[in-house]
Computed example of a mutant assay.
Amino acid sequence: METIGFDDFLKVELRVGRVLAAEPFAQARKPAYVLQVDFGPELGVRKSSAQITVHYRPEDLVGRLVVAVVNFPNKQIGPLMSECLVTGFHDADGAVALCVPDRDVPPGTRLL
């Protein structure tokens, strides 16, 4: 594993957002949802594709807090322009479990 300095870590903008909407991403090659995530007044609402269909239903995602990288360049994923990267961890079977704060924090809060 390569080590990095703290300044390198600070370049990554990990922010908390609240899921406003989640719907199946029918055009995705692998099962995924399109998420609309609110990062507060500074960053606004951003879209993301998330391969989290094993553990989550769209209706259960609405209102949840997630952690996302918000300073990657936008990425075209099929017909969707993804504007952030929602983070998660692969479980023992390879399905993704979301990385989430364990307390309620305001959308837009930066991870430090």
Rank of each mutant, 00 (worst) to 15 (best):
T87I: 06
I52F: 06
G17S: 08
P106I: 07
D7R: 13
P31G: 10
T109F: 01
V16S: 08
L35H: 10
I77L: 15
V54A: 15
L85V: 14
R110A: 13
G88A: 01
T53L: 06
L35D: 14
G5V: 02
Q36K: 15
S82L: 10
G63Y: 02
G88T: 04
V105N: 07
V105A: 01
G63C: 02
V70P: 04
D102T: 14
Q51Y: 09
G108N: 11
M81E: 15
V66T: 08
P24Y: 08
P24V: 02
V69K: 02
P106M: 09
E23Y: 13
R57H: 15
R18H: 02
D60W: 00
V16N: 03
L61M: 13
G40N: 15
H55Y: 03
G44T: 13
C84W: 05
C99D: 02
H55E: 06
R64C: 00
V16D: 07
E2Q: 14
G63W: 06
Y33D: 09
V69W: 07
S82D: 12
V96N: 03
C99T: 15
P106H: 05
K75D: 03
T53C: 14
Y33G: 03
R110Q: 15
T3Q: 12
L85H: 12
L43E: 12
R64Y: 02
S49W: 04
G78F: 01
L98T: 12
C84R: 07
N74W: 09
A26Q: 12
D38C: 09
E42I: 01
N71D: 05
R18Y: 03
R29G: 10
L61Y: 11
V45P: 14
D60V: 06
P31M: 10
M81A: 05
E83P: 09
A32P: 10
F39C: 11
G5Y: 04
L10A: 01
V62L: 04
L35Q: 13
V69A: 11
S82G: 11
T53D: 00
C99M: 15
G108D: 12
L43C: 02
A28T: 14
A97T: 11
G63H: 08
A92L: 11
R64A: 01
T109W: 03
R57V: 09
G88I: 02
C84A: 09
L111S: 07
V19K: 06
R29T: 13
L65P: 04
F25W: 02
E59T: 07
R64N: 03
C84M: 10
C99V: 15
V45W: 00
D102W: 03
P107C: 11
L98I: 11
V86M: 08
E2I: 13
A97F: 05
Y33H: 09
R29V: 10
L20G: 04
V70Q: 04
L61F: 08
V12R: 04
A68N: 06
C99R: 11
L20Y: 08
T53W: 04
V96H: 13
